[in-house]
């Protein structure tokens, strides 16, 4: 899992059925001091936790699929926590 900030939204009307009603964001990975690291990526938000500008924790690879209730979706990254604060 990594920390990231939502910097954009991806709009797609035609998508795989399993992803209907799931928003997709562009996320900039950040360090705990809020400095950008690595390049931005597309992250799905199965639980509707995030909005633009929010700091989040996202999970990648096989485990991103597990963030969905069905456990059967073609995603590579998912939002799993909305960060209140990093202390």
């Amino acid at each position: 899992m990594k920390l990231g900030v939502v910097i954009g939204v991806v709009w797609a009307s035609r998508k795989v059925e399993a992803l209907d009603a799931c928003r997709m964001y562009i996320v900039q990975p950040v360090s705990s001091e809020n400095n950008p690291v690595e390049s931005p990526l597309v992250v799905a938000d199965p639980k509707g936790l995030a909005a633009s500008g929010d700091k989040i924790v996202y999970v990648t690879s096989t485990d991103a699929v597990e963030a969905f209730d069905s456990g059967f979706v073609p995603v590579n990254a998912s939002v799993i926590e909305l960060v209140d604060v990093v202390v």
Binding site: V6, I7, V10, W11, V16, Q28
Partner: peptide, 16 residues
């Protein structure tokens, strides 16, 4: 690899 969505628009709301 699989094509999962056709993108209508990408909105960048915050700049780093």
């Amino acid at each position: 690899a699989v094509v999962i969505a056709i993108i209508d628009d990408v909105q960048i709301t915050h700049q780093f």
